[in-house]
């Protein structure tokens, strides 16, 4: 993406052209291509093919035949509209929250942490050392009715006894935010860290105060990180189901929960496939529009 161009004046070196016809580049590409075909192209095709199958009346569980029934998509979408829309709303909220939390954090690490920088970076990724699931489960304890937060809040006069945090949309969005925070922080850090501090000094030298410098120089220069971070947060968050399953209630289920349920519990592969496909397509469209809008490839 935008990282290809460098900010310094020395980027205009000569580009080496292909000197002779050789198989080497193709050979080098081969493992990647095989990987791509095996783990992306093939599943996509099989997903597409499964999505239009139909279960014959009376057939064994998990038995489906191809009838090219595209109405599966309409059925699947109509039956699960609610969770579908909810997924994108939750993912968007979590992305915004993660950005709000991660930006100051990444900024601090990049510019103000001094010798503690590496320790802080390790702390940012430290949650990855335990399983995603266990971390989320830990949240149920922290946010539980008799957990530290609710107990403390209940001491306040205006908080009534029925106050709760778990099994609420709040808990699900918080869980999503927390779990994907490192995906937001690291690209932000990477792009902030790349900023030449002299451009910030130059801005100050050119009559911009600290806030204007932040707005006019730091933010635009960190935009590639913002774009990367928001995508890395939004995409998995939209497809996530762990947080909704553990921290939510029956009214906070996301599309990932539905896909998981259709696939494993109901063994309704066509619906699961149609939903996965629709989710993927929607994310792809949103991401394309987003990247177009933010114009990242022109940045820097």
């Amino acid at each position: 993406m935008a990282f290809l161009h460098t900010a310094t004046g020395t980027s205009s070196g000569p580009k080496s052209g292909i000197k002779s016809k050789s198989w080497t580049p193709y050979l080098l590409l081969a493992p990647g291509l095989i990987w791509l075909i095996t783990f992306f192209i093939f599943p996509i095709i099989s997903l597409a093919s499964t999505s239009t199958m139909v279960r014959p009346e009376g057939a064994q569980i998990g038995t489906y035949v191809q009838e090219l029934r595209f109405a599966n998509y309409i059925d699947a979408f109509q039956a699960n509209q609610e969770q579908y829309i909810r997924s994108f709303i939750y993912a968007a909220l979590a992305t915004i929250l993660a950005l709000a939390i991660a930006y100051p954090l990444a900024y601090m690490i990049a510019f103000k942490s001094g010798k503690y920088r590496n320790i802080l970076l390790v702390l940012v990724v430290a949650p990855f050392f335990t399983s995603f699931l266990l971390r989320t489960v830990a949240w149920t304890q922290i946010l539980g009715d008799e957990g530290p937060i609710v107990s403390t809040l209940k001491l306040l006069p205006f908080v009534d006894e029925s106050m709760r945090l778990t099994s609420t949309p709040f808990a699900v969005v918080s869980g999503l935010t927390y779990n994907f925070l490192p995906f937001m922080t690291l690209p932000l850090y990477a792009s902030l860290e790349r900023i030449d501090p002299r451009t910030l000094e130059a801005s100050g030298d050119l009559y911009a105060n600290a806030f204007t410098t932040f707005r006019k120089v730091t933010v635009p220069l960190s935009l590639p990180g913002v774009v990367a971070g928001t995508l890395l947060t939004f995409i998995p968050a939209a497809g996530d189901y762990i947080n909704a399953a553990i921290l939510g209630n029956p009214n906070t289920r996301m599309i990932g929960n539905v896909i998981e349920s259709r696939f494993f519990a109901v063994v309704d592969y066509p619906t699961a496939a149609a939903l996965s496909f629709t989710l993927m397509a929607t994310i792809l469209i949103l991401v394309t529009l987003y990247i177009r809008r933010t114009n990242t490839d022109e940045l820097v």
Partner: peptide
């Protein structure tokens, strides 16, 4: 979180 892609591969084998 692999359910999305997993649904594709496994379903294909499973039908």
């Amino acid at each position: 979180a692999g359910a999305v892609v997993g649904a594709g591969t496994l379903a294909a084998c499973g039908t």
